[in-house]
Structures are given as C-alpha cells and as structure tokens.
Design a protein around this nucleic acid. Structure first.
Lengths: 127, 127
DNA sequence: CTGTATCCAGAAGGATACTG
DNA sequence: CAGTATCCTTCTGGATACAG
C-alpha cells in the first residue's frame, strides 16, 4: 500500500495518496454541508430559499458556495426561471443521487448515536 | 448531560436543527481526516507512526488533534505502553467500528467516481 | 427572491524545532 | 517513537449591505 501516485495510467485511485485527486473529491463529499444538502434534495428539485430554510442556520454565502461546488462537480443542476421574482431550482443529477444513501447513513448515524457520543465526551472530560 | 437542545418528547434528534448536538457529531464524522483514520484502523490496532504513514501527507499536529477528538467522542481508544522507545496504539471501539462501513463507502465513492467528477469540473470551467 | 460583494473573526492545517 | 510547542498561513463561515 506504499505505492506512489501513478494513475491515470493504471486504475488504482487512492484517497490515501496525498496527490490523488480522489482526496479532493473525498473532502467535498465528507463535509457536513454537503451531507445535509444532498440529503435534503433527495425528494426532488428545491428552490434556494427552501433549501436554506431546511438547513437551519446556514448563511446565504455558505449555501451559495456549497451549491456552486456541487454543481461544478456534477452532483446537481441549477435551473434559473426567468420570472419576477426570480426562481432558481436545484436538482440532483444521477451522479448526485448515488450519494443520497451514503450521506443519509451518516446523518442518521449522527442522530442515532448522540447519547453514546455525549456520554463518551463527558467521561473523557471528567478525567 | 447538560444540553441546550433536546428533541421534543417522542421525536428524534435532527441534524437539520441548528442547535441539535447531532449536527456537531455529523461535522466530526463527515470529515476527510476522520474518514481516512477510521478506514485505516479497520483491521486492528495501529501505532501513531503507522497511521501517519498510511495517511500520506497528514502532519503530526493534525493527526494528534484528529485522534484526540475521536477518542473523546468514544470512537477509538488510546493505549500507551511503557516502553523505550514509546509505543502508542489506537484501536476502534465498538462504536467506532459501526462507522467503518459508512466511511469506507465514502472513500470508495471518491475513488470510483473521479473520472465523472473531473469531467464535470472541466465542463463547468469551460463555459 | 436569489443571489453578490465585502469585510472580518475564528478554525483548520502546515512547518519547524524540540522533549521524554 | 510519539508526541508538544510555537508560529504562521489558508480556509471556513458569519454579518452586513446591496443589486437585478
């Protein structure tokens, strides 16, 4: 496993290799905002404001940045409707949809294991 | 547990609620270093130096911080052996082991979908 | 309504030197 | 070997104001 980064000539992309682009990709998907955005979009297209309301507490700037990054990496599409007031809808691509289940699992893990995590934290801080 | 937020009776914790502690927990596990550390520890205890070698490019400081946070949240244990030179081993707890599969899936996703992501990125940048 | 443009504080993370 | 300590740079993300 101590191989130097060699792809794309070969086939073995590897997040453990510092220069491998898969590590950048991992950083993008292993991210709390990404997990929440993808999860929230699973049921179909949503408007900017509705996403922002769903992800309670996110700023407009951060949501804009997150959505743009996800669009750039092909995980969602952005459609602007020429209406007044403006309407913009975001929708997962097939590629983005393959992330729904993995990221939903993470969100559920965080929710389901809160008692254990908080207990462990208290125990650690008490010593 | 001294919480500023508790889910309403009969309901579950929810990462979409800003003050819910599950969001902090999500931030910790939805993180590239966490994903790599957990994945690398799946086969059993490992020494600090071996983990650092496996996660090519991580600094001692960042690895120390990451391991301490994971220990604090009950996902791994840290055992110090009174030897010269020192030996310290990190091992996943049962709680930590429940993260192996979800996080390994993320790492595999990042590796397997690199061609699509890079293609999408090029297409986006070209317009 | 859906952003952009700034500015700024704090967190994350790297480099280097050093210790038990 | 397994860290600490320190310093420094970069990135993240919040606040505010404003535009189309």
């Amino acid at each position: 496993m101590n191989l130097r980064y060699a792809p794309p000539a070969g086939r073995s992309w590897n997040v453990l290799v510092a220069e491998c682009p898969s590590r950048t990709s991992l950083a993008r998907i292993a991210n709390k905002w990404t997990a929440m955005v993808i999860t929230v979009l699973e049921n179909g297209p949503m408007r900017f404001g509705d996403i922002r309301s769903a992800l309670e507490g996110i700023s407009a700037k951060v949501l804009t940045d997150t959505l743009r990054d996800l669009e750039r990496d092909g995980m969602l599409t952005r459609e602007v409707y020429g209406e007044i007031p403006p309407r913009v809808e975001y929708e997962l691509t097939p590629l983005g949809r393959t992330l729904i289940e993995p990221l939903a699992v993470l969100c559920r893990w965080a929710e389901q294991h809160i008692p254990e995590v908080l207990a462990a934290r208290d125990a650690y801080d008490d010593r």
